[in-house]
């Protein structure tokens, strides 16, 4: 184990990790919004929009992120739409994640029992109040495990960002392969992924414990 190598290049990895975290946070936040909107559209069976949401969900869930990124970064500019690689990464991750999050929220929404909705209506809640105070909190509690799995999945998916010229962890790793020291390089790569993924996993484990008590209306 060559500590000199590790201390020399840990800085590079740290910078790459920072970039990954920023892109992942933006992409995942957007995918939560997209997922919520799509799942509500399907829950309320809004005409036309419902079919569009369905088509989008199937497309995002049945194609790989890498191909989505290739198309966004190398294909679209030829049709007149040029995007920065950072923008591509966020849009790509949100496009992929939106479909997965929509399914997670849908599972939650479907688990909210009819009785809860009727009880809400009978105490005189308006439609928006019903969604805000009765349906969403319960749906969210049920959806948390699926949201957790999706978030971890999306964080791992960020590992392909180097194909659109972003200096992420994998990019740094490949850059340092030439230097030899493959044990140290392997260690740094795995370590930095653990550093960014583990806290997310722990946070969601905590969140799952918190919302499990919310066993209403089952």
């Amino acid at each position: 184990m060559d500590l000199a190598f590790i201390s020399k290049y840990a800085q590079l990895y740290a910078q790459a990790a920072k970039l990954t975290v920023i892109l992942a946070a933006a992409g995942i936040a957007l995918s939560l919004v997209i997922g919520l909107v799509c799942s509500l559209i399907r829950y309320y069976r809004l005409p036309l929009l419902k079919s569009l949401a369905r088509a989008y969900i199937e497309m995002s869930r049945n194609t790989p992120l890498m191909i989505q990124l290739f198309f966004l970064y190398y294909g679209l500019p030829r049709a007149g739409l040029r995007l920065e690689s950072v923008t591509c990464a966020i849009i790509g991750l949100a496009f992929l994640g939106g479909g997965y999050m929509a399914e997670a929220f849908r599972g939650g929404l479907e688990a909210v029992s009819r009785v809860q909705v009727e009880a809400g209506l009978s105490v005189g809640l308006s439609r928006p109040q019903l969604v805000r105070y009765v349906i969403l909190p319960q749906a969210f509690a049920v959806a948390v495990p699926a949201i957790t799995a999706n978030t971890i999945f999306l964080m791992k998916e960020t590992s392909v960002f180097s194909i659109i010229a972003l200096a992420d962890l994998v990019y740094v790793f490949k850059d340092l392969v030439r230097e030899g020291h493959s044990n140290e390089n392997n260690l740094l790569l795995v370590l930095f992924y653990l550093i960014i993924i583990l806290p997310v996993s722990l946070f969601f484990a905590y969140l799952e414990r918190r919302v499990r008590r919310a066993g209403f209306g089952a």
Binding site: K156, S159, N186
Partner: peptide, 15 residues
């Protein structure tokens, strides 16, 4: 399951 598959792929490929 914690480590991205691409990371496993690279490590095995080079190591």
């Amino acid at each position: 399951r914690f480590v991205p598959i691409l990371v496993l792929l690279y490590i095995f490929y080079y190591t």
